[in-house]
Design a protein around this nucleic acid. Structure first.
Lengths: 111, 111
DNA sequence: GGGAGTGTATGGTTTTCATCGAACACTCGG
DNA sequence: CCGAGTGTTCGATGAAAACCATACACTCCC
């Protein structure tokens, strides 16, 4: 089989430094992913498992969104027992895209 | 001051204040539109007509891209004779989305 | 060991978006 | 008035993205 030695394969993480600008913008241009990032920003690191987010999509789509966030250097994941816990890569992402995350996390004026 | 003197319908401009975050990000997540914004930022206001940009798409697609940029509050247009000249709404857009435009206009390190 | 819980992969559907060619509208200069 | 230049609109096409249901893989705990 594959090289699934002991731990679940660590999903391909991408460092923000390797993310092109359009990819970062595209990753954050989706309402579901914005919601994920916002909730993540409001929780302590490594405390939220993938299934603990209140988004209106099924598991498969959710998994896909996390893959996009990983690929954009926005989220880091680690296996913890049977769950996969998340961390927002705030400092790294801010270093590469200053102000972008702040923009998304900012309270949206009611209009 | 109210409206443009010209006959051609003034295209629906949207002020950046009315643009939701995802729409702004989506507008800037396209390479062609990034190129348009960059060239626009490097030219004096009201000096560039729509056809004067060096992008690898036909007229129809180009017109579409400008419509998106208008809808995102990024570009303002005015009819000048037979041509339609453009202006990057930098101060307004910066006020609404601080740092976003800077991010896109920033030189991209080769890696 | 066998479930229950959790997340990923696969396959297929639907929607969205970028693009083009062609037709149309407007302006300007002969 | 006609033709060249400029930009928008329309219809169609192809590609990308979001989504779901199902099936699979892994971990924990009884």
């Amino acid at each position: 089989m594959a090289e699934r030695t002991s731990h679940r394969a660590a999903p391909g993480h991408t460092h923000p430094d390797e993310v092109p600008v359009p990819a970062a913008l595209a990753a954050l241009a989706d309402p579901v992913r914005i919601q994920l990032v916002r909730e993540l920003a409001g929780s302590a690191e490594w405390t939220r498992s993938c299934g603990s987010f209140d988004v209106p999509v099924g598991k498969a789509a959710l998994s896909h969104h996390f893959a996009v966030l990983r690929g954009a250097g926005l989220v880091e994941q680690r296996d913890e027992g049977s769950r996969r816990v998340n961390r927002l890569r705030r400092p790294e992402f801010d270093a590469r895209f200053p102000g972008l995350l702040d923009l998304v996390l900012r309270e949206e004026p009611p209009r």
